[in-house]
Simulated scan of single mutants.
Amino acid sequence: MKIAFIHHTLVIGSGIDTVIWELAHRLKGEHDVKIFTFLNEYPSGLVKVVNIPFNENKVINSVFSPFLPNSYKLRGLIKEFDVVNVHHYPANFFPFFPKKLETFNIVTEWSGPPLSLLKNLSLKEKFYIKFIMAMNKYAALRADDLIAPCDFVKKWIKDNYGLDSRKIYLDGINFDYFNFKKYKKEKIDFGGPIILYVGRIAPNKNIDILIESFETVKRELEDSKLVIVGRKTFPEYYKKLKNFLKKRKLEESVIFTGEVSWDDLPLYYASCDVFATCSAWEGFLRAEAFAMKKPMVAFDAGANKETIKDGINGFLVKEKSPEAFANALIKILEDNNLRKKMGKNGYKWAKENLDFDVIAKNFSKYITEVTN
């Protein structure tokens, strides 16, 4: 079967980009697979990738690419495929505009943030997010089939679009890459118990609440450290966080690493004692920490409960307060046996459900079923 994946970027380590590349890499033995993208960071030869040149301006690409001349070239290339899989805008617009292609078009929907989370954004940012959500709905309503990467998103699709969808875990883990055995002796010595956060430095990720929680943890565990790995996507928010650290005299204990290379990321997971996120919303909570046998702590929000089984592989904090979150972290950090048990449970669940080898088999089976 000829399968085309379309995504505007193919950036190493980025969530959806990783899903597409890992799936294509595993499906190529059974199917004729190609990825169409504007920007590719992956090495050549492992997967067939077609680079479609568009405008060099990222804003123009992310908003207007479906309406530019090269979009017709892309549509001409993908119409020869049996199945086309797209995720969010702008990639999900190509199979449906100006008219729907006769290929079997599958849209993977990742849901959108609650509108309440947009209140602190600028008018431009609010407009952009609402525009993207409207375009995603446009594609979903015209798709031949819809994939939801978890039950939370499946319900979100039904509530917001009135459509049924097929649940398939997609945001998986390459266990050869995130291999805890490789890092048993290799660690980064930050000194003391390590709480790790990996993700964008953005207001909806509630890094400020995480830091407030850590302040409470530090009163109990004086030598503990909070390591924050990720891009500073909101400079003003990052500046606010740094000012808070200075005011509370936490600059030596909270470490912002900036963006870390994909090759180095497993070492950070291996070096921590617990992974923590105070994010207000996630379409699916990534679980690389489980691959390294580390427990996770998060608020009971969005799809988090599908990754974290409360009290089994981590803690889901129901009370949205820094104090409650800190208590969950302290409980794990002070109990070595609990920490190890939760880490093992997380590894077992992730290996059974989120191994990309398992996900690729499920995806291939799904495509065969829906196209027949």
Rank of each mutant, 00 (worst) to 15 (best):
N243L: 15
Y237H: 11
F299S: 06
N243D: 13
L196D: 01
D223C: 10
E251A: 10
K187N: 00
E319K: 11
T277V: 11
G192H: 01
L245C: 07
K309R: 09
F244D: 09
A280T: 00
V297C: 01
A298L: 07
E215K: 14
I209N: 00
K242G: 11
V227N: 03
N206Y: 08
V229Y: 01
L250D: 03
P203C: 07
K185G: 14
T257H: 09
I255M: 13
A287I: 14
E288K: 13
Y237C: 15
R200H: 11
G311C: 08
E220S: 12
A276C: 04
K249N: 11
Y238N: 11
I207W: 05
R231M: 14
D263T: 01
E288P: 05
Y269C: 15
E306R: 06
V274G: 06
L245Y: 09
A270R: 11
E259C: 00
Y237I: 12
K225L: 07
S279E: 08
E251F: 07
R231I: 14
P203D: 05
L226I: 13
I308D: 04
G302T: 02
R286Y: 07
Y269M: 15
V198I: 09
T257N: 03
N313V: 05
S279W: 06
N204E: 15
I207E: 05
E236R: 14
T233S: 13
L267D: 01
E306K: 10
I228M: 07
K225D: 08
K246Q: 05
K247A: 06
L316F: 10
T216N: 11
G283I: 13
K294Q: 06
L316M: 13
V260P: 12
I255S: 05
V317Y: 02
G302V: 06
P203T: 03
S253M: 06
F256P: 15
G230F: 08
E236V: 03
L221P: 08
K218E: 15
S224Y: 04
V217T: 00
V198A: 05
Y269H: 10
E252V: 07
V260Y: 02
A287V: 12
K246A: 05
L250S: 03
P203L: 06
F244M: 15
K294T: 08
